[in-house]
Nucleic acid binder design. Structure first.
Lengths: 136, 136
DNA sequence: GCTTGACCTTGACATGGTGGGAAGGTGCAC
DNA sequence: GTGCACCTTCCCACCATGTCAAGGTCAAGC
């Protein structure tokens, strides 16, 4: 199976498959006489695993650990859960920061006329750095 | 005022001040005879503006537009509001995606014993790609 | 056998915002 | 005149992915 077919089958682009090979996330693919990479069912499983992990937002480093655990029959599910929990916490923290920014900006935006006049609490806040709620 | 002092005063690192100058976000700073950059009150205001914009998550491109509007006395507040609204929408979309991933992962995590045994619905989901809710 | 088109190869460069570091010049206090 | 803190420019790294270029390979049709 060529890299293009593997890409289609797993949803990981050929580009990324090569990249993952280069950074050592997946083992080096076999090669045909002409140098084409070849992939078997096991490789496809690994690529699909990576794809689903990326879909859940795991970083490459985390995926490296998850792959190792996946292939370790004596793994402790606690190790998996720890990685997942850490990732959940990271995502929640990101959401919290986003929520804060959205909140502040929506508040400012609500008080902006949004017409042809220049007066605008958003610009004023950025320029003057007043405390968040100090507009009212 | 040296770049270091400007950095301390505004919370933008010296590194980033040079970077912003290089990409044309701020005008080129004046120089002493020895080539040191010098900053005045106006420059500090601009840097603070940028810093607060970054704190609200605006991208460099958006900040470029905001700076232009800030310095335009004939600006329409509608233009500012449009940029802010677009940014709010982007952030909300990011939050939505994060929320989805958190939701899926929390669900899987809740069914993982997290002990020394290898069985783990998280790994199983990543490996098998079952539909999200198919574990129960 | 030759052409064509789809595929493969490697490699370089871009994104965005920031950090790190090296190698060398400057300013000031002692 | 020495030492230290600061400045300068330039290059590299992150992370995950895309794009592009120049060239090799394969299979089908003529």
């Amino acid at each position: 199976m060529n890299i293009g077919e593997a890409a289609n089958a797993t949803g990981v682009t050929a580009k990324m498959i090569r990249h993952y090979e280069q950074i050592g996330l997946i083992r080096e693919a076999g090669r045909t006489g002409a140098g084409y990479r070849t992939y078997g069912p096991k490789d496809l499983s690994t690529l699909s695993f990576i794809r689903r992990s990326r879909d859940l937002g795991f970083s490459i480093v985390q995926i490296r650990d998850l792959l190792a655990l996946w292939q370790d029959r004596a793994r402790a599910s606690g190790d998996v859960k720890r990685i997942a929990s850490a990732h959940i916490d990271e995502m929640k923290e990101k959401m919290r920061l986003l929520q804060e920014m959205v909140h502040t900006l929506e508040h400012l935006s609500a008080h902006c006329h949004g017409d042809d006049r220049p007066d605008c609490p958003i610009i004023e806040q950025l320029a003057a750095g007043k405390a968040e709620g100090s507009c009212c």
